[in-house]
Design a protein around this nucleic acid. Structure first.
Lengths: 342, 342
DNA sequence: GCATCGTACTGAAGCGCTTCAGGGTACGCA
DNA sequence: TGCGTACCCTGAAGCGCTTCAGTACGATGC
């Protein structure tokens, strides 16, 4: 059974294809009576416009592509919570593509381009700047969580160096000196700024000799592996993790090894995701206004789509959210801590 | 700057558009030498095929649409972990659409159809069977986590009634009698089977008078609200939550109210998501083989795509995973419990 | 020498839509 | 009567690709 086309609707009503097209897109041109007939006929036939034909003819589309790396990371979900609604209200629909490797990212961008996406939101892309720039010149693009020097795309980043400093400072003020960092890996995304911020802060506090990095990734498993790696040398009194997932993976591993948090090792995460806020998790974390970032991204993307060509860039300020996963070292008395924590 | 088309590549090499099309799709027809020239020219021009034109001309596409309700729910992420890889290996790319309301689901399906998706994976759709059936007749479709009587689509569900029974039985055997259910709401998806399973099991154990439902949804917030609702009457000794997120929301709310888990109220979830397995969370849950479900969905979808028209349906068996969020009632001594739990 | 066949290639049609340049008709106004 | 104009509508071109029915030509067989 062939699916109905504009012509089917047109001949059913007895008007031209053009008029049907106009009418179904909500444009003027038909009399009230004709309009009703057209809409009715389209409904009866179960007419659904063919996106391919439409996009081809109009050389445009109403789809925006969202590229993200990991569905398990609530970071992405939070950003999209802010992004989704305003885009939908503006008449766009969002199609999400998953790409957890740089090679996949590249082909994802080809897909987006090939679909003539009206816009794209790239969250924490690991691609080279050059690739992103090239893409950005043909598709209106907003990049989140990746610092770039190019002007072809808009950009929203957190001040990750500052965030890392806040984390180290918090631990320092609690009395920690041996503070290790579980870093996000080699991707040029958030990882490097957090790492740099960590190193800077450690130096500022005169803790050069305690500077230590392990891990390399943004997942639960990376957190666990990172702890193993750290413990092969000596046990730090505190860990600053590249994000909340890594922090949770670390706490889990510590727990399995019989070490408590914060009793034996304090742990601080990054992103302040919904789950870290759960009391049972109680993870101290660095908060970024994720939903707001998503909303801002929607606004910027719409502006780009509307023709703005100058680059827009925003740096969001992080802040510390203190919970139960960090405490002073030495004070190994669990009960003292528990009393205040729960 | 116009983006290059097949004709641009063709005239650059001095061959016909047809030959370029054939060659770039990896089909035979050109001599080795010509092929190399074509590929080189395409690269130099930065040619990317136009998906709209391609799909329109071929009346097909290599994209499969995935519809899901909530990015925050790890359930979906786990299923996609299994689904993504085999689909990609088979040459499909996946585009995810978010739809957290029935109206949005409907327009999502229109979008999928409009894009002539090669296939669709619907996870826990809330739509009427009729709508799904209509969609399924025009797009090869696999539905996960929703029991349907129609044969137009393939289906994978967990045996949720059995899962619910396992949950109630576990609590019963621990000594609980006043077991409440935080249900998933009015969506026809998983919620109703779990609810029915709960009611059946309660009856079987002669606990009719304790049957109580509250909440209505699958999110953290729904769990918290559900607890409030329950506590307006009397406090149950155990709660069976519709999923892990609801369970975590419930534990959180209980904790805020000064009630401990499992000391005051035992809580059991559903789905055994990665996060519930974290020791700090330690949520007893009903496990479903989610990654496997995703893999199976990929297989089924490819079969459908290849022409199978008979319906295929699988029911997966759930099993109990016991952790620290459930214990016998009365035994309010936290320390006794803690000792074994941590 | 002629039919046959495989290889390398071409041209044109057409997918379903949007867009653009009009075409009637009726009405108002000088 | 003639002209402008508003309203409702049409026809044809063309978006960039795939597909199908060929064509040209050298090699092969007898």
């Amino acid at each position: 059974m062939r699916r109905p086309t504009l012509d089917d609707v047109a001949s059913r009503v007895g008007v031209s294809r053009t008029l049907v097209s106009l009418t179904l897109r909500g444009l003027a041109g038909a009399s009230d009576e004709t309009r009703d007939q057209i809409i009715r006929a389209a409904g009866e036939l179960g007419y659904v416009p063919d996106a391919a034909a439409r996009n081809l003819a109009s050389q445009s589309s109403r789809a925006v592509g969202v590229m993200m790396r990991d569905l398990h990371n609530a970071f992405f979900a939070d950003v999209l919570d802010g992004f989704d609604r305003p885009m939908r209200d503006a008449g766009f629909h969002m199609l999400i593509g998953l790409a957890d490797q740089v090679a996949l990212e590249r082909s994802m961008l080809d897909t987006f381009r090939s679909y003539r996406m009206a816009g794209a939101l790239l969250i924490g892309p690991g691609l080279r700047e050059r690739d992103i720039e090239e893409f950005g010149t043909s598709v209106p693009t907003v990049v989140v969580a990746r610092r770039l020097r190019i002007t072809a795309v808009d950009m929203i980043v957190g001040d990750d160096r500052k965030g890392a400093r806040l984390a180290v400072q918090h631990l320092y003020e609690l009395g920690h000196r041996d503070i290790a960092h579980l870093d996000g890996g080699s991707l040029p995304a958030a990882a490097s700024a957090r790492r740099t911020g960590y190193v800077d802060a450690m130096k500022r506090f005169g803790l050069d000799r305690f500077i230590r990095m392990a891990g390399g990734g943004f997942t639960l498993a990376d957190g666990a592996d990172g702890v193993d790696e750290l413990l092969r040398k000596r046990r730090p009194t505190a860990i600053f993790a590249a994000n909340d997932l890594v922090a949770m993976g670390a706490m889990e591993r510590l727990s399995v090894l019989g070490l408590s948090t914060p009793g034996d090792v304090s742990v601080i995460g990054y992103d302040n995701s919904t789950l870290s806020a759960q009391r049972r998790v109680g993870l101290t974390s660095i908060a970024q206004p994720l939903v707001q970032i998503g909303e801002l991204a929607a606004t910027m993307l719409q502006e780009r789509h509307a023709g703005r060509t100058t680059a827009s860039r925003h740096v969001m300020t992080p802040k510390l959210v203190e919970r139960e996963s960090t405490a002073s070292p030495r004070k190994h008395s669990k009960d003292a801590r528990r009393g205040s924590a729960r």
